[in-house]
């Protein structure tokens, strides 16, 4: 009996694995993957579409510039070029961080390119396009402008942001 049982178990596992491989192949074909950049901000998870993120940069001195709105703390140099920086905490009306550490996502949205100051990148992952949910209906209109949708990651909910909306919100009066 045990021998019979053992052989049955290996067969079962093998068949399951094969099924899994087939399903993956099918997924690859039918459901295209999307790269997203997961990052944390005030203990919550957010994401930018990977296509909108050019580069992840460490914070190395932001130079202020007079006259700009409060959510734009200043300018940085990126390999000889000058880029603006948006403080995403300020844009989302979150309190200032406990420690000044952070990272900058160099993102594009529409015609605009700018650095976005976040707490830190958690991961760069490929997710199924179908796993991205539409934004919740109960959001107000201002928030709806820069929230592209939501997804689940390891049991945590992730808010997918639209960079163009974030930029527009940053310079809005």
């Amino acid at each position: 009996m045990p021998h019979q049982h053992d052989s049955m178990k290996s067969d079962r596992i093998l068949s399951e694995l094969k099924l899994l491989r087939e399903s993956r192949t099918i997924t690859d074909v039918d459901e295209p993957m999307v790269t997203v950049v997961l990052f944390s901000l005030d203990g919550e998870l957010y994401a930018f579409p990977g296509a909108n993120v050019l580069e992840i940069l460490p914070v190395e001195g932001i130079s202020p510039i007079p006259g700009t709105p409060e959510c734009i703390p200043g300018l940085i140099t990126v390999r000889g070029d000058i880029e603006s920086v948006i403080d995403l905490r300020r844009v989302l009306d979150l309190p200032p961080p406990a420690d000044a550490q952070g990272q900058i996502l160099l993102a594009t949205g529409g015609e605009v390119r700018s650095g976005v100051l976040i707490d830190g990148v958690e991961d760069v992952v490929d997710v199924l396009r179908t796993s991205i949910l539409p934004p919740p209906r109960n959001l107000d209109r201002q928030t709806r402008e820069f929230v592209a949708g939501g997804l689940e990651r390891d049991g945590r909910s992730v808010t997918l942001l639209d960079p163009a909306g974030v930029f527009a919100r940053a310079v809005a009066p």
């Binding site: 950049v37 990977g50 050019l54 992840i56 940069l57 460490p58 490929d126």
Partner: peptide, 17 residues
């Protein structure tokens, strides 16, 4: 290690594009 991780993230982004 942090920098390495950052580079890895950026590499992942590059790979995606």
């Amino acid at each position: 290690a942090n920098q390495t991780k950052l580079i890895a993230f950026n590499a992942a982004l590059e790979a995606a594009s």
